[in-house]
Every structure is written in structure tokens, then in C-alpha cells.
Design a protein around this nucleic acid. Structure first.
Lengths: 212, 212
DNA sequence: AAGTCACATGACTCAGAGGTCACATGCCGA
DNA sequence: TCGGCATGTGACCTCTGAGTCATGTGACTT
């Protein structure tokens, strides 16, 4: 938790610090992010930074909390009643809301990617120790339900498929970011295409790439 | 290229240095790998290290070259005549030879993982600048051939599928390593299971996880 | 025995990291 | 006007990184 001083700051200043820190962590990852660069970017003194936060970990955790908070706003209504929809509809909704989030908060989505990419890193293990297991448990529940309903083949290796689905999540975002990078960061233009790709992608998970 | 001095070294010493460096890069990645730790581990002076290599990049590139060399030995005969087999057989062969390699050279496979994980890192861009494009081109060729033969649905987004297949490659290895980690590094025991998983996995790519 | 040459060595430089601290500034109530 | 207290500041600390260099060593030549 940041120190009280940080929360007493004028909103604008606080926002600038957070934004600068987000950008730093997004582009360099946790280990290579530099407090010096953050304070320079946010135009505050190093000493001030340490009046706001206990240490590097502290900012990072705070940002993660803020991000998680923000991400909640994007969770589609579909995902709030998982029992009412079939597995692939849920998956599609998850991807779509994820991409919506990424489109509107590209920096934050980049951090999300870093987190997934380095989910074995001690700091992430620490922050998401229960979160990860809970996520897997939720996924597992969904898969079992889908199998019971006959939506998914019963012969799949559940832990393996969970891992794959997680990874594909990252892969899709990476693809998305690479696309917009190649496109001179012109996001709005490519967005609809990517959204279409999601549908194709869900179809791929469902039916494979082989001919029927 | 390492300096001549390095190649004049007795085989044993050279091997020790290489092994130590491999292990360092495998566990810490390029940025966080420490020359100090390498020289300590290999029991040579820092100065000696710089008599062998120009700089950090130099060792790394050398190791990559050695690894690529070694990996060639594992390429299955199936993959050497890609025209003679259907796409999924090729994919299966690729995964199997990859896992064979990982089983017998776990440290090196870990580096391979690092490379894939950080394929956007400047050093990897530099090392594999043509290699990556060539790989993608090869994949693309295979996919087009497979589509022409009617093995793969013609409506797939080729670049996207290439990206996905690449990512899944890493995902499989990560899963493999996580499994053996949980199993106290007892590899031989789990190996056959993992090989079975590959078959299931290929099937998943071909037919998806949905019910037919 | 003297000289040469390849290799070995670790103390050193400089840069940048995260984090600290003595002091400056400015606002607010008395 | 003054004291007190929250906030701001940047020089400074220690640590570790990559990379350098003057010097040492030992084998082989002449």
C-alpha cells in the first residue's frame, strides 16, 4: 500500500505519477523498470517518490490493484452469468471484452501482457498467489460444466487445455499489438478486423484448423 | 564470434565455460544474466572471460550457434521431406523431436524458451533477423500446401495461425517444464505421458476441443 | 639463459540501480 | 508573527553490473 501522502496528492499529480509508472513498467517490465526514469518522467524528486511509496514493489502492487479495478468495468454481462451460456460464447465474450480493454487502455494491456509473460516471476507469484489458482479453478469449473453439457469433448486433458487457453489469450494480445505496431499505431482502423479474427479464433478452438 | 583464445582452450575447460554460461542464461535470461556469476561458476577470472569473448552479446550469440547446431541432430527424418507427409504428421514430428531435444538437453531447451518468450528483445531480433522470417515463410508454405491438399480449412487467417502455432510450441514446453518441476525433476517417468499429450494436442489443433 | 608469446588474473573504472536523509519550502492555526 | 507539520528536494549511499588493463606466469624457441 502506498503511503498516505500519495493519496493526499492533487488528483492530477497522482494521475501523472501513475500514468508514468504504468508506461515505464509496460515498456521495460518489472525488473528493468527504473525509478529514476519514473521520477524524471513524472517530474518529481526521487525523495518525493519515496514519500509516496515504500519501494518499487509498492508502486507495482498499487498499479496492479488499480488495473484490476479498472478491468472489472469491462467484464461483459455475459461473463457474469456463466451458467447461462455455452463455453464458446463465454470464451468469445472474454476475448472481446479483453480486446475492448486493450484498445482503450493499451499501456495497461501491455502490462497485463508482461504479467502473463512473466507469471513465474517472484513478484507476480506474490501478487497473484491466490488469484492464479482461483482463475484456474474457475476455468476448470467451466470446462467440466461444458463437458457435462456435451459442448466439449470429454477426452481432453483439462489442466493442459487450461494452460493452452491461457497462453492463447496472451498470443492473441501479442498478435493484436504487433498488428497495430506494423500499422503505425493506427488502432481504430484495425480494430474491427481484429474483432473478426476473434470469431475465427474461437471457431478454431472449437473445431480446429483441420477440414471437417 | 568468440576470440581465438577461446577455441585454443582445452576442451574440458571450454565445455565448462559453455555449460556454466548456458545455465546462467537459461535461468536468468539475457538481461539478468551476470558475467560475474558465470566467471565464478566456471572458476575463471573476469579478465580471462574477456580474453575469450568480446562482450556479453558475443557469448550469447556463440551459445545460440552451438545450440542451433546441436538441435539439427534431432530433426526427425519426417521433417526433412515435408512434401511426403500431411501437415499434422509434420507437426507431430516437430513437437516430438522438440520434446526429445528438451528431454535430453533441459538447460538448452530452457534457453530456447527464453528466446521465444523474449523474441521481441533486441538481441534476439538481431540474432534471428532472417531466421524468424525464414521460419514464418516455411510455415506459410506448409500451410498453403496443406490447404491446397484439403488438409486444412481454407478460411483460416494464415499469419494469425502461424503466430498461434509458434506460441503453442512454447506453451507445450512450458507445460512440460512445469510438470517436471512439480514432479521433482523426475523426467524419465513423465516423459511418455507428455508424448501422449502431444498426440492429443495435435488432435486438438486439427479438430478443436468442441464436440464433433 | 634470455627472450617471446599466449594466456591468466583481479583490482579497477564508470554507469546505473534502489533507497536514504538532512534540509528547504510553504501552509495553517494561534 | 511565529511555531509546527506535511510535503518537496537532490545530493548521497551502497551495491552490482559490464568491461578494462597493468601485471604475472609458464612453456617453448633460439
Amino acid at each position: 500500500m502506498p503511503k498516505e501522502t500519495f493519496f493526499n496528492l492533487p488528483d492530477e499529480k497522482r494521475a501523472l505519477i501513475e500514468a508514468t509508472a504504468v508506461s515505464e513498467f509496460a515498456t521495460h517490465g518489472y525488473d528493468n523498470a527504473s525509478i529514476n526514469r519514473i521520477v524524471a518522467g513524472a517530474k518529481i524528486a526521487k525523495g518525493s517518490f519515496y514519500q509516496y511509496f515504500h519501494d518499487k514493489k509498492d508502486v507495482y502492487k498499487h498499479l496492479m490493484a488499480r488495473i484490476a479495478e479498472k478491468k472489472l468495468d469491462y467484464i461483459s454481462p455475459v461473463l457474469q452469468n456463466p451458467g447461462d451460456y455455452d463455453f464458446f460464447t463465454l470464451l468469445q465474450a472474454a476475448y472481446r471484452s479483453g480486446l475492448d480493454f486493450a484498445r482503450e487502455n493499451p499501456q495497461i494491456a501491455l502490462i497485463g501482457n508482461q504479467v502473463f509473460k512473466h507469471r513465474d516471476h517472484p513478484i507476480h507469484q506474490e501478487i497473484f498467489k491466490e488469484g492464479q489458482d482461483a482463475g484456474k479453478a474457475f476455468y476448470e469449473q467451466l470446462l467440466r460444466l461444458a463437458i457435462a453439457r456435451g459442448e466439449i469433448r470429454p477426452d481432453i486433458d483439462i489442466p493442459f487445455v487450461i494452460h493452452i487457453l491461457n497462453t492463447l489469450n496472451v498470443a492473441t494480445f501479442e498478435y493484436y499489438f504487433e498488428s497495430i505496431k506494423g500499422n503505425d499505431f493506427n488502432m481504430t482502423e484495425i480494430d474491427d478486423d481484429v474483432m473478426d479474427t476473434v470469431d475465427l479464433f474461437i471457431d478454431f478452438i472449437k473445431n480446429g484448423i483441420g477440414t471437417p
